[in-house]
């Protein structure tokens, strides 16, 4: 099984630690994983701004980079959802279709494909802190990584299941378990006032429950919340799910 590692552009540029943790995690789990070096971006920033017609270059590049893999894994729900819903290529139509089906967000890949049931049996993982879990909307409502509070349906959570395998972790409850943080791509600058207010409210929910870390599957939401935490002078940190699973503290 050959796995292509897709590292979203902003993770590559600003959060290499999350990317390294993802790579190391997959390696520890015995996955044959490699990182195509010519990758850039999934094209979502343009598409969500109404410029999907400008994503042809990104789509072509993405297809060229990833069409030969059995699976593509990325530490982001949002970018994976974009590829699943919108990747198209005239040149490699079949490849694009196939990529849409074989791309996975990290926690879904670990849960559904690798069927990880316990971490200690594979490698030690310890994170003795109080952690708030942020459900990123695209991961949750788009990729169904966890049950959505709006629906009348049994609960589950792929990221939650993995985090519960980590020794010493204390997951804090939240008042609003799946409210959006307000990042929203270009929304975060185009609708600055509402975006910031949403972020402040989301952060406050975690803080009021004593979280020392806020984690999630999407660095973009975490980057937004980190920006607010740091402006407030908070000591609370954001950390990608992969970094927790990959740590022994």
């Amino acid at each position: 099984m050959k796995v292509g590692l897709f590292i979203p552009c902003y993770v590559d540029q600003f959060y290499p630690g999350a990317a390294i943790a993802t790579l190391q995690l997959l390696e520890k789990l015995g996955v044959d994983v490699s990182y195509p070096k010519n990758q850039t971006c999934c094209g979502q920033p343009m598409a969500n701004s109404g410029f999907a017609h400008l994503t042809g270059g990104c789509d072509k590049l993405f297809t060229e980079n990833f069409r030969h893999f059995d699976y593509i894994v990325a530490p982001s729900g949002s970018c994976v959802l974009h590829i699943k819903e919108h990747l198209h290529s005239n040149e490699y139509a079949d490849d694009a279709a196939s990529i849409r089906n074989k791309i996975y967000e990290l926690s879904a890949f670990l849960t559904d494909i690798l069927q990880v049931e316990s971490l200690p049996s594979r490698f030690p993982s310890r994170f003795p802190f109080k952690v708030g879990v942020h459900q990123s909307c695209h991961g949750q409502r788009g990729l169904y990584l966890s049950q959505m509070s709006e629906l009348v349906a049994p609960g589950f959570s792929k990221p939650g299941k993995l985090l519960n395998m980590v020794e010493g972790i204390d997951i804090v409850p939240l008042n609003r378990p799946d409210e959006c943080c307000g990042f929203g791509g270009t929304f975060c600058v185009a609708e600055e006032a509402v975006s910031v207010k949403m972020g402040k409210d989301r952060v406050e929910d975690h803080l009021s429950h004593g979280a020392e870390y806020i984690t999630g599957v999407d660095m973009s939401c975490l980057m937004h919340m980190e920006g607010i935490l740091r402006r407030q002078g908070s000591k609370v940190k954001v950390i990608h799910l992969a970094e927790i699973l990959n740590s022994y503290q």
């Binding site: 902003y10 975060c188 600058v189 600055e192 910031v196 740091r230």
Partner: peptide
């Protein structure tokens, strides 16, 4: 960064800090 394309008055920075720039990208690492 995608979130900073609209750079008129740098709306990101108004109420949020920027991520600390790492020494190298993941690609470089």
């Amino acid at each position: 960064a995608p979130f900073a394309v609209n750079n008129r008055f740098n709306p990101w920075f108004k109420q949020r800090d920027m991520p600390a720039p790492p020494n190298q990208s993941f690609g470089e690492w």
